[in-house]
């Protein structure tokens, strides 16, 4: 039976892992390669590394980091942050990334999804959507860490991304990210039902129950989480053990 995936996410700035609370304050938490290796050994199913460096030096450091991660870990990993072109994606593929994730660049130029998928395959492209709910109850994609709303309605944009060649959708609720208050499960369930490709839930996990809920009620195929792992609240093995105990298929 296909297992639900648990994916630790590491935000990297200048080669070091950091994690923001609602994407604003940053607290440094550790070495990116060491942490990835530790998560893989604990049973993480995949890893995501997001580059949040703002400088060219930071970007170059990230490509070097991707190379070291590829040398070290024996599970798939996805990289993202600052990918604007097919060339950017190619550089990260050459460095050893299994998948890339694109967000704002896909909103600015949706053709990018098809360009990358056409060259490297659908499985290589994860389209990330940071969405916020509006006063009318509709969800819209945002850019710039949730600060800029766009006219892309969540469901329509996710379907468009799939049609253009995305292999997975990574949906983060900017209303929940970093709050540790749980995921908006009904929105995930409706989105998962509307897609023919896997849906990864992100942002908001405060407990194993939250993750269990989004993988069952929320019908997500995978859950991405950062803070509950980085601060040692739970190990990946503890999370998966508890999920297995509640009957959710996970790789132990």
């Amino acid at each position: 039976m296909l297992a639900k995936r648990i994916i630790p996410c590491l935000d990297v700035k200048d080669g070091r892992v950091v994690k923001g609370i609602n994407f604003t304050s940053l607290a440094e938490v550790g070495d990116a390669v060491e942490m990835g290796h530790k998560y893989a050994m604990e049973g993480a199913d995949e890893l995501v590394y997001l580059d949040i460096s703002a400088t060219i030096e930071g970007r170059n450091t990230f490509a070097e980091l991707v190379r070291r991660v590829a040398d070290t870990v024996n599970i798939p990993f996805t990289v993202g942050g600052g990918i604007r072109s097919l060339d950017d994606a190619a550089r990260l593929l050459d460095a050893g990334a299994d998948k890339i994730t694109i967000n704002s660049a896909a909103i600015a130029r949706p053709e990018l999804i098809g360009e990358i998928a056409g060259r490297y395959g659908r499985q290589f492209v994860v389209v990330a959507i940071d969405a916020k709910s509006g006063p009318d109850g509709k969800w819209h994609a945002t850019t710039h860490g949730g600060s800029r709303p766009t006219d892309k309605e969540l469901f329509a944009w996710a379907r468009e991304a799939e049609d253009r060649g995305a292999g997975e959708i990574l949906f983060t609720s900017m209303d929940h990210d970093g709050t540790r208050n749980g995921y908006p499960c009904p929105v995930y369930a409706a989105l998962s039902d509307s897609l023919g490709i896997p849906l990864i839930a992100s942002g908001g996990a405060g407990s194993v129950d939250d993750i269990a809920a989004v993988l069952t009620d929320g019908k997500a195929d995978a859950a991405l989480a950062a803070s509950i792992f980085h601060y040692g609240k739970y190990t990946v093995a503890e999370v998966k053990g508890q999920l297995a105990a509640s009957g959710i298929p996970v790789r132990i």
Partner: peptide, 15 residues
């Protein structure tokens, strides 16, 4: 063939 509960690609860990 895609079906409810069977997304394509088959992606992830299976036994």
């Amino acid at each position: 063939t895609a079906a409810p509960g069977r997304k394509v690609p088959h992606m992830g860990w299976n036994n």
